[in-house]
Design a binder for these strands. Structure first.
Lengths: 290, 290
DNA sequence: AGCATTATCTGACTTTAGTCAGATAATGCG
DNA sequence: CGCATTATCTGACTAAAGTCAGATAATGCT
């Protein structure tokens, strides 16, 4: 009744029936679920037929027929791939875009009505983020992105907000040594964002310097994604990128108010060194030889 | 990307594919999903054919055929209902119980492996409870139960633990006037447990006294179920039960460290009165004329 | 008793999903 | 160039799910 396994199974049952209702909504537009799923995959930017087939785990014969039926409806057009005429590329027609928008509106309305029904939406959303992150853990992509991209800026904003909450004295970016975006772009450095199904849930910056080492900056993992060893994955990726750039020495600074960060560094080959900058926030300094 | 609707939709996607995997596990025993679902419904105690059909939303023709195929496999037996020979009642045979147990083992193993894969299981379970409660809110049953039943004792244990956390001085049941279970059984009183799909998520006691009034005791709502107005439902049910028992005056005591409780009482027709007992914990006393 | 209602069953469908063995055409590579 | 490989398509299936119009028998109600 109250053991963890029962609780997981209760969640499964609750969600299965809710998701069932969600699926049937996709049937509200007079189209079989398979065709609707393909249309939506195309609408969400997947154009390569093989990619869609792979994503939706469809047999090639079935896929071909579904594409044909969407073509007959006038919702998509397929053309040969520019580089490889065996492959086909699908895109929405004007009418297909309209139909896709209708599905999007349906999904949005469903999500909105769910939110409207529940007063404690914040707690609910946090719980949903946590579960979604856990379920998609193995599908988290680490993408190199511009430090001024929308995704990167979102992560940094969350990062600063968290520092503000966790430092006794708060956190003001302008007092800190905010790294120049140019130092976190190739060839001087890089910036990586962990994306879980479109949602940014973590980041790390590699900042080039002129002093014979590079710095790790802005390591952040969304609260909903903690415990999934994402911090370690981000650090590994940053170190790999550094090696690729010919960097042999890394440094970073952190604060003892972030014990999980210090713990991560200590267990992954970093050693504590004396202060190497005059930033007012950090009180711990590390170095790692690659 | 980060708006609430996107977050809900991300959760839906994550859970849909996870649930898909769950469904296919039901196919591992050489039986179509429909038949497996019916077998499991019967195994979980649903015996009335009409009830199962309703629960699984099956057409009567389809249902009939699924029952036949399970009968042919020797997993179930159907008999006419004792009171109404038109209705049929299905129950598992010995072999059916064995097969059902195999499905149960599969589900448990799946839940266990999910838990094993995730280090922060406590946070994950709390999030799952919250979501499951929200999704099944309209299906929460208020059952009259013995105050010494397993479900009731679970609720009371959680209730005491929460008082311990929220009272500055902690909470020790033995110092409080722990109501005698007999006073919370008919005809003197009653005890109700809110059950969401097998999980107790709230309770309330109605305690009879010899002083011309009854008391409301042990009103508790699980953290995962707050915000769903369950406290109000429990109170309404307790008041209804009191009316049914011919009780016309209710009293209760509470503590100002539980502001949401005081708020609930004040907005539902209770008025504050002077202390009417010598229990060391409460500092607020209410009364309501029915 | 007579008649409408109800629960289930049966037969005759259709639709959707999925499988599999080739066919066709483009590409990569020695 | 020739041949293996690859991506897609077509035809010929099967299985599962679902629909619908009666048939059958028990029940409720007057």
């Amino acid at each position: 009744m109250l053991d963890p396994v029962s609780r997981v199974r209760r969640f499964n049952r609750a969600v299965t029936s809710a998701v069932g209702a969600l699926d049937t909504s996709f049937l509200g537009r007079g189209r079989p679920l398979g065709a609707a799923r393909v249309l939506n995959a195309i609408g969400h930017g997947r154009s390569d037929v093989a990619e869609i087939r792979d994503y939706l785990a469809l047999d090639s014969g079935l896929m071909s027929r579904l594409l044909r039926s969407l073509e007959d409806e006038g919702l998509i057009e397929t053309t040969a791939h520019a580089d490889d005429a065996r492959r086909r590329v699908a895109k929405l027609t004007r009418e297909g875009r309209r139909e896709f928008a209708a599905y999007e509106a349906l999904s949005n309305a469903q999500a909105e009505s769910f939110l409207a029904q529940h007063s404690q939406a914040d707690a609910l959303l946090a719980a949903m983020d946590l579960i979604a992150s856990a379920l998609t853990r193995e599908r988290v992509a680490l993408n190199e992105m511009d430090p001024q991209s929308e995704e990167a800026r979102y992560c940094l904003g969350e990062y600063y907000a968290e520092l503000g909450r966790r430092f006794k004295q708060g956190f003001d970016v302008s007092l800190s040594r905010d790294p120049d975006a140019r130092d976190m772009r190739r060839p001087r450095g890089t910036f990586m964002v962990a994306i879980s199904d479109t949602l940014p849930i973590g980041c790390v910056g590699l900042k080039g310097t002129d002093y014979g080492y590079a710095e790790i900056k802005r390591l952040w993992v969304a609260p909903a994604a903690r415990g999934l060893r994402l911090g370690r994955r981000l650090m590994d990726a940053a170190e790999d990128a550094a090696r690729g750039l010919g960097i042999t020495l890394l440094r970073l600074d952190t604060n003892s108010a972030l014990p999980e960060a210090g713990q991560l560094y200590r267990t992954t080959g970093w050693r504590e060194i004396p202060r190497f900058n005059d930033d007012p926030y950090p009180d711990l300094f590390f170095e790692k030889q690659l």
